[in-house]
Nucleic acid binder design. Sequence first.
DNA 1: GGGCTCCTGGAT
DNA 2: ATCCAGGAGCCC
Length: 271
Amino acid sequence: MVLGLRESLLGQRVQRVRIFCDRLLGQTTPSSLRRVRGGRVIGLNRKGKFLLFHLSNGSLLVFHLRMTGKLLLVPSASPLTSRDRLRLDFSGWDWALSFEDTRRFGSLDILHGCEAADGLLSELGPDALIVGLEDFRELLAESRRPVKALLLDQRVIAGLGNIYVDESLHRAGIHPRTPAADIPRPDSRLLHASMRSILRKAIGCRGSSVSDYRDSRNRPGSFQKHHRVYQRAGEPCITCREPIAYIRVSGRGTHLCPACQKHPADGRRSS
DNA sequence: GGGCTCCTGGAT
DNA sequence: ATCCAGGAGCCC
């Protein structure tokens, strides 16, 4: 998402911001909206699941798409629809940025100057694509929570969601309920590697479109074609043909292969 | 940890 | 009608 937006938006000057959703509006103030106007997009980055628009006037727009959010480039002349939650117009450009979000869980925070370092982003753990193997191992070693819960916790490690956690654990052969600290060194190396390669590949595929995700040019992602467990309950495991199971782990629907991903306690319990 | 909440819509 | 969903914050 960032890559696609960056090539089109970088250098554009914000002409106006319109918000059509009370929830989104509640997160902003009229004065902070005013301060955004006239700023040029000088940087577009990602931090975990947050999208950061740096403007030349010191404003920082922080989007989070949550489950159903989309940032779409639309012709600036295109009429507003009931799906539009926000519209960003740019000076002298025939494209606009539209934020659509069926379930309205998405967010926009507008920060200025030094505020940018506070709150929100400061709580985030290291990005899953940046954290090194040894730091990753330390994060695991410090907790006995189920490894799935740990990987989903953005304060521990930022950027992973339900799909990529399930896929990473499957490829590393780790049961999602394994206490993180119990993961042996060879397995944590595997997990670190699979997490990185899956995220890189998924980004290359422009994400996974389980239902309605679209990139900024309204194209679905294609990584769902490479899912080995997510939404494959009952279908044979790619590696061992065992049917993929569906369970609940720390409140989240979880897909795994019961044969490839053994829980360490299973052996003890059955003997 | 588990459970509930914020929302809307699709599948069954 | 009921269950489920790419997320995450709040409560006990």
